[in-house]
Design a protein around this nucleic acid. Structure first.
Length: 254
DNA sequence: ATGGCTTCATAGTGAAGA
């Protein structure tokens, strides 16, 4: 079973890239973030015609998440129960026995901002909720845009990013809180090249200069991690005209 | 150099992303 996550930065703009990529990569489940579409505008027709089932929760302009799957998705759940949030950032469903949780973790803007405080509160609520979910669903995968670079090796210039948003110690501590639930970073289960990133700023020619961060991740519960046979980042779509600033990330289960 | 690009909502610019 091939799992993937991709922050498409507008599904409307990126639909051609997504359809091409689905054809080439043939995943079984794909989590999307930043669809930026209200539900009536989700491109169900185009995706269903290509053989995908769609579960989605979106809003105008910002945020928006979706799960695409070849097999039916059951027990759909939206948001973090008990955490009031207007922003559409969480969708979960069960596909072929795997509990797929798709998250678009808040960006946080800067470490002294209200958005940063919201990000940390959001992460705390996510962690509390997932503790229970993992008991309910031992075969759980947490995929998405984490907006956290877990370690310095996930950052092109750790000195420049030190204590900045996406790399600050409280954010990384929150990430370790997720790991403490038993979730494993699938990418790090395997030997990987240096300078492996999943996001590059649109400005400054950052992609060509390899100035990126690894912030898009697939974490696997303790039952799923031993089944993981491969994990990688596909940088090819980032080379296209009008790309998303994020690359798709893949984990293959045996 | 605190910008640089891209998207969306808008109708000239501003917010937000990371």
């Amino acid at each position: 079973m091939k799992l993937a996550t991709w922050n498409v930065n507008s599904l409307k703009v990126r639909l051609p890239h997504l359809l091409d990529w689905l054809t080439r990569e043939q995943p079984d489940v794909v989590c999307l973030q930043e669809t930026k579409l209200e539900d009536p505008k989700f491109p169900v027709t185009e995706l269903e015609a290509a053989g995908w089932r769609c579960a989605y929760s979106g809003q105008k302009t910002y945020n928006g998440v979706a799960i695409l799957s070849r097999a039916p998705a059951a027990d759909l759940s939206l948001g973090i129960p008990g955490f009031a949030d207007e922003q559409k950032r969480v969708i979960a469903a069960t596909v072929e026995g795997v509990r797929v949780v798709c998250v678009y973790i808040p960006n946080g803007q800067s470490v002294d901002s209200d958005k940063y405080r919201y990000k940390l509160a959001w992460l705390e609520a996510l962690t509390v909720w997932l503790r229970g979910e993992l008991e309910k669903y031992p075969d759980l995968a947490l995929l998405g845009d984490y907006n956290i670079a877990p370690e310095d090796r996930d950052v092109h210039d750790p000195a420049a990013w030190k204590d900045q948003v996406l790399c600050s110690e409280p954010e990384r501590a929150a990430f370790r809180g997720l790991q403490a639930l038993g979730l494993k970073d699938s990418f790090r289960l395997f030997e990987q090249p240096d300078g492996a990133f999943s996001w590059w700023d649109y400005r400054m020619n950052a992609f060509k200069r390899r100035m990126g961060l690894r912030i898009d991740l697939i974490l696997l519960g303790e039952h799923l991690a031993p089944r993981c046979k491969a994990a990688r980042i596909d940088v090819e779509p980032r080379k296209l005209e009008r790309p998303s600033d994020h690359a798709p990330v893949i984990a293959e289960l045996g």
